[in-house]
Design a protein around this nucleic acid. Structure first.
Lengths: 244, 244
DNA sequence: CCGTCCGAATCACCTATGTTAGTGACATCG
DNA sequence: CGATGTCACTAACATAGGTGATTCGGACGG
């Protein structure tokens, strides 16, 4: 399948029936304007969202008002899946840019699990990949310096945008405020500014209005806290649920 | 089902065939002595592990040698699931105490996804719950003080041990070194010591050799960064995969 | 064309946490 | 029953990153 659906076939091939189902999701997309909430922490959980276009964020708010951004979501991501096991939403989902997404109601997920084993496997494995990403984020934030976190974040973002075809020659859109990046990396906006300026001054990246260019990948990797884990690919899972 | 298997039925009821399968796992348990590795980062991924008894830890090591402990695993937990989507293990699993666990090979997981939709749903939802836990950890480490993190950790650990029947009157085993807690909470061992002493001095907890007692739950909660999210329970998912 | 607002960029100063370097209490073991 | 090692605990000092406050420029709305 083409982006943004390609991610569903990263680990297992889907059957025609699976693919029809997925295509059906895109029939009635919902649009949300940038900076608007999609679903708030504490709201009822009616289902999940498949992100068709635009950037979104999930975040958690602490009692003292501190916000932790959990993840920046790009097209092809499933949003709100973790809250399925909670009695009310555990994260706030909001649009970073204008966004287009399809709501998938609880009942549809139940039916899918019953009738579409391969698609279920795809979701299960995709969720494990999200877990790996969370483990990485936790590790960076728990034990790397501001500079290392920033480098890791930029490299990761580049790779994810690249695989969605949104990078041209190292340059990509960057619609994030420094405050937001701070909430994501566990830093203050002031320190984000210091850190970005430093990466800029070293010549690793170039910043223009609303865009970033990575000039020196090796340099960035050298200050990054670790190398990204390598995905397994489909070979390992080719036999699940019969032939595709 | 009885502990340690009860967690599998937290969100969906299982069929007799599912239950037989799960019971079969426990047939050939593997024992690992405390402080010994179960599987190292970079090792081949042959499957996952179901923890029958004892405490285990998963952790990630950074290039500079820093270790981030991702999670303390208690009986009933699945270990190593995220690495299923990687070409080699992304986390190190090790025994904190003497441990008993059953290896579940890749092929068995594939068959399970094909033939046991309810069990698959159980695993999918359990994994979402793990994601919620990771999101919580990320939020604590990213934006709470050392004291708040420690309080949150102790409360969470208490609740998890309690639901496994391992707490007596607020007291539970605590086989973790301060260095380990530091690696878990993103602090140094020295600062862990300061923080624990402070909680002790305030009268929130009492520490004996290898054990901890929580004396003042309300006090601990008052310094904790947020309240734990409430699980959905089985009602929401009762219809998956037909009757139990 | 002028106010208003938001976000980037600075600056001076502060503090929570890290660093280094110990000591002493127990275990474990040959 | 000394030798060795691990772990809790302490203290003096260092620093990465936080705070609060200000300035500036561009986008937008009327």
């Amino acid at each position: 399948m083409q982006p943004p659906f390609h991610r569903l076939e990263e680990f297992v091939g889907l059957t025609p029936s699976d693919i029809n189902l997925v295509r059906g999701w895109a029939a009635n997309p919902r649009r949300v304007a940038r900076h608007q909430p999609i679903r708030r922490e504490g709201d009822p959980v009616n289902g999940v969202f498949f992100l068709l276009a635009g950037w979104a964020a999930s975040s958690v708010i602490l009692r003292d008002g501190q916000r932790q951004v959990i993840k920046v979501h790009l097209p092809g991501d499933m949003l709100g899946f973790p809250s399925l096991v909670l009695s009310s939403a555990g994260e706030t989902l909001e649009a970073i840019t204008d966004v287009s997404l399809c709501p998938i109601p609880n009942a549809a997920i139940g039916r899918l699990i019953e009738h579409n084993p391969r698609l279920t496997a795809a979701l299960l494995l995709n969720t494990q990949k999200e877990r790996v990403a969370l483990m990485q984020a936790l590790t960076w934030i728990g034990s790397a310096s501001a500079l290392a976190r920033m480098a890791a974040f930029l490299l990761d973002l580049h790779d994810r945008l690249d695989s969605a075809g949104l990078v041209i020659d190292g340059t990509f859109d960057f619609p994030l405020t420094q405050q937001f990046i701070g909430d994501l990396l566990g830093l203050t906006a002031v320190h984000v500014n210091r850190t970005l300026k430093r990466l800029d001054a070293t010549g690793y990246v170039d910043r223009k209005k609303g865009q970033i260019t990575i000039l020196d990948f090796e340099g960035l990797r050298s200050v990054s806290p670790n190398l990204p884990p390598e995905p397994a690919g489909r070979a390992a899972w080719s036999r699940i649920g019969g032939k595709a």
